[in-house]
Design a protein around this nucleic acid. Structure first.
Lengths: 189, 189
DNA sequence: AGAGTCATGTAAGCTGTTACATGATTCG
DNA sequence: CGAATCATGTAACAGCTTACATGACTCT
């Protein structure tokens, strides 16, 4: 289970509705996660049924009413258990890798194009994460913040996200160059 | 669909049974993918039904008979289509990130332990991939191989796997250090 | 004799994605 | 006035994981 724990983990930092995190889930909560609202509503409903989170109705005049959720004691306990349990190593699972794998056989042109698109998407995310990190650490420099900051969880996971995007960008650009240069020397197909 | 294309991609390099790749799927085919044999059998059966791959029975004396699969023309065509279609960006989805996110609230000890375990697992994989890369490029150096080599698909995906594992290791070690050093200054809980 | 490997599958279940649906309010 | 945003859900489906099952051969 993944969202099952990712959602309460988010909620530790405060109350959220189902809608809020859905918008920012890519970046703020989990610079690493992504989930459409539907999934969050479903998960929150399930978690509430099990008593791991609790919601309270907030009436809004101009906007539709919403429900803000927080983690219950029982939810905290389960999160703590989850934290202690071992989990399996992660791995990349990316269609683009499959495409690169077969590019020299089935045609490089569309793959090169996608590699370059990915690289600029990664670049954009790198900048976004850079800003977010600066914002999170405020005036302090990184070392300082990590030593004395109160809540560093988000910062640490952002760092992973940043490194991932940088690695992704670098690889995309490298591979695009390699494939491009081969086009002059290797016949396609 | 992911395995749906990853499997034929593998099969482009030669014939395989369901069993063979299952063992090496972590490393050889897709230094990035991982799938248990059950899934491969299921996928191969499905792909065969749709005519994208074809199998031939190989009788073995000492071992149980097996079926070797290869990609059909129709399978190649679909792969090529897949290669041209755009796919969504990838992201990390790792329980460990969730744990790090909440570590400063719910207890750092078990998380530090897991970070260090992960780091050494990543280290092991880095060495494995290094060996594989050396083996794939033979006598040539990397630049040379990437320019003139016949089939570089696996090499390129391995490079991504390698960079990913290095990033993973570095992050794990860094975060473990950060959390460890905070333990002397921050009370837990 | 028992453990491990080669070889193949079925069946159930968990997670996550996508499409569909609703309805008020705000912004240009 | 139309598009976007806030806000919440249902239903169907696709994909992956896990448990279970079988059976022969090889190595210690």
């Amino acid at each position: 289970m993944a969202l099952r724990h990712a959602v309460p983990a988010t909620l530790l930092d405060g109350e959220y509705s189902g809608y809020q995190p859905a918008k920012t889930f890519d970046v703020v909560v989990a610079n690493f996660w992504h989930a459409p609202p539907q999934q969050l509503y479903a998960e929150l409903t399930e978690l509430e049924k099990e008593g791991l989170v609790a919601g309270r109705q907030v009436v809004q005049e101009t906007r539709p009413d919403k429900r803000l959720f927080h983690v219950t004691d029982s939810g905290r306990a389960e999160l703590k258990e989850f934290t202690a349990a071992v989990s399996k190593p992660s791995f990349i699972r990316d269609d683009l890798l499959v495409k690169v794998q077969v590019a020299d056989r089935l045609g490089t042109a569309p793959v090169i194009e996608q590699l370059e698109e990915r690289a600029s998407a990664a670049e954009a995310k790198i900048e976004l994460l850079g800003k977010l990190l600066r914002q999170l650490r405020g005036d302090a420099d990184e070392e300082e913040f990590l030593r004395r900051g109160e809540r560093i969880g988000s910062y640490l996971t952002c760092l992973r996200g940043l490194a991932f995007e940088q690695g992704h960008r670098d690889w995309c650009l490298r591979i695009a160059t390699v494939l491009r240069e081969r086009r002059t020397t290797h016949a396609e197909r």
